[in-house]
Amino acid sequence: MAPPSFAIPGQTLAASSKYSPGPGTHLISSQITSSLLGPSDSKKNTITPKSTPILSIQRPSNSPPQPSVNTQVYARITRLERLQARCDIVVVSDIVAPLPLRGILRSQDVRATEKDKVKLPECFVVGDIIRAVIVGLGDQQGYYLSTAGNEFGVVMAWSEAGNGCVPVSWKEVRDSVTGVKELRKVAKPI
């Protein structure tokens, strides 16, 4: 039996022997049941291709994004400390968060190599916009972020003079007006 194309919370969708429960669903006595209002969607399981397809319910577009591990985010650096940088996550997987979420970027997560030689002031300045990935839900202080990887790091930076900067290497940016170079952990442009 094919699952209904549209579901309301509490509606039974399919038996758990035919499908696997995905986002927006839950299991009650081996029946996959919807927990949201929305159209249903079944996808092939990409991690274990031999198992049953994943049945999920689409979330309405206006609901706030849920950060999870391996989600790509954009964040603004708000404070630099000796061992970690605090930031406000403003975009979660291409959806603007209605309220900024707190994030923590620890110095060992800044880059993949030579982790112990990272000096945070040579990588970030307060106000920079970074592209990062969530590596842990963290504690009440905030989500743990990582910029390890070429495509992660500073995407927007402003120099000491206040002008916008352009990247010149993986660890340098140049003021577009005065031409002064500053140090950043730059994200590879994509």
Binding site: I8, P9, G10, G24, S35, L36, L37, R59, N62, S63
Partner: peptide
């Protein structure tokens, strides 16, 4: 339901 918060039932 309008807010899109997961519920087991109505």
């Amino acid at each position: 339901v309008d807010a899109g918060i997961d519920c087991v039932d109505l």
